[in-house]
């Protein structure tokens, strides 16, 4: 099973000018890489006021695609937490008002399926509508769902995307859990920090996917996922998957990884890089979007940008120089060293 990515849209911490090597990238403040929000002129202001950040991101990223007059047959969203900020505001109401006389707005906006359902509502879409919330594989499971849908209904087009937000509350919980750095290195050198935890990130990435090759940007060749924390098993798994999909390693122009500066999970990235024995260029992207459970969706958006621009910016390179030709990209990422995914994309010519 495969599909084509026909259109993309993204709200992330970066401006879209990633390809000018003189462009200054936005950096984290206080360990958090906040998304750069647009003015959302597509969203009716009365609705915008009620939306929490995750819903705003998701709707703000998807509506420009949906409003180009393109109908989709369904909406598939991956999000680990949905509107965490709203959820926690409601929790605060419960505690502070001792469960009495609460207003339901935050509760309704904070449910994880609020993004997909708001999109269904605003685009008058009565079709398939789903929200996958499987933490670090919420987006990958959404891709698998889209693949199956396009296999079942070959003529359809689906909106596929992912969104997660930084809220004060989930930041605190992740920080306590060691997943964000206590002493934040605000620049790209967080990769070299050697300490535990990463940089908090957020964003929304949205895609139109179909079996239509015309004017498509990229083709998803395969997606595979596994749950494990054994690096040997992960290494064997990646090799095995590449073998079973008959991937010739020398045809891959770039390995893009989710390396995130967390010394607890570096071993998985090192293991995967070792498969290629320094023979291909290796790049990483978390300095652009930060770490969050659905950050792999940002990587897919980035890969589409590489294909569109036929260029790899220097700032994402880890090993080797930017490849001259950028037509096949292998993406490996893991979330907290437990949920791993492997995807292969090729440029549509």
């Amino acid at each position: 099973m495969m599909f084509y990515i026909n259109q993309t849209s993204c709200i992330s911490p970066q401006e879209f000018i990633l390809f000018d090597d003189n462009h200054i990238l936005r950096k984290a403040t206080g360990g958090k890489l906040f998304a750069l929000e647009p003015n959302y002129k597509n969203i009716p202001s009365a609705q915008l006021r009620r939306m929490g950040k995750a819903v705003r991101f998701g709707v703000g990223a998807a509506l420009p695609l949906l409003q180009q007059g393109n109908d989709v047959n369904g909406i598939i969203i991956g999000t680990a937490n949905g509107g965490m900020e709203d959820c926690m505001k409601f929790l605060k109401q419960i505690i502070e008002f001792d469960e009495d006389s609460l207003t339901p707005g935050n509760f309704v906006q904070g449910v994880p399926n609020a993004v997909a359902s708001q999109l269904g509502l605003l685009s008058h879409n009565l079709g398939y509508n789903i929200t996958n919330v499987h933490r670090g594989l919420a987006f990958e499971n959404s891709i698998i769902d889209a693949l199956m849908l396009l296999n079942e209904h070959p003529l359809n087009t689906y909106l596929l995307g992912a969104v997660d937000e930084i809220s004060d509350f989930n930041y605190k919980i992740e920080l306590l859990n060691g997943n964000y750095k206590q002493q934040s290195n605000e620049g790209t050198d967080f990769y070299e920090s050697g300490s535990q935890g990463s940089l908090a990130g957020e964003g929304a990435s949205m895609f139109f996917v179909s079996n239509k090759k015309d004017a498509a940007i990229a083709k998803l060749e395969f997606v595979e996922t596994i749950h494990s924390s054994d690096e040997e098993e992960i290494l064997n798994w990646v090799e095995g998957r590449l073998g079973s999909h008959l991937i010739e390693m020398d045809k891959i122009d770039l390995l893009l990884t989710g390396e995130n500066g967390d010394n607890r999970v570096l071993k998985y990235y090192t293991a995967i890089e070792s498969i290629f024995n320094n023979k291909i260029s290796i790049a990483r992207y978390k300095h652009l979007c930060g770490e969050y459970a659905t950050a792999s969706a940002y990587a897919v958006w980035l890969i589409c940008e590489l294909f569109k621009n036929s260029k790899v910016p220097l700032h994402i390179m880890k090993v080797g120089t930017p490849p001259q030709k950028i037509e096949k990209v292998l993406l490996y990422t893991n979330y907290l060293g437990e949920q791993h995914s492997l995807m292969l994309f090729s440029k549509v010519k």
Binding site: P112, N113, N129, I130, T131, N132, V133, A138, I144
Partner: peptide, 17 residues
């Protein structure tokens, strides 16, 4: 559950209320 049964296949969680 995945950890307890050491599952290696596709595991997903869905939330549509």
């Amino acid at each position: 559950l995945q950890n307890r049964y050491k599952m290696k296949g596709i595991v997903n969680t869905i939330n549509t209320a």
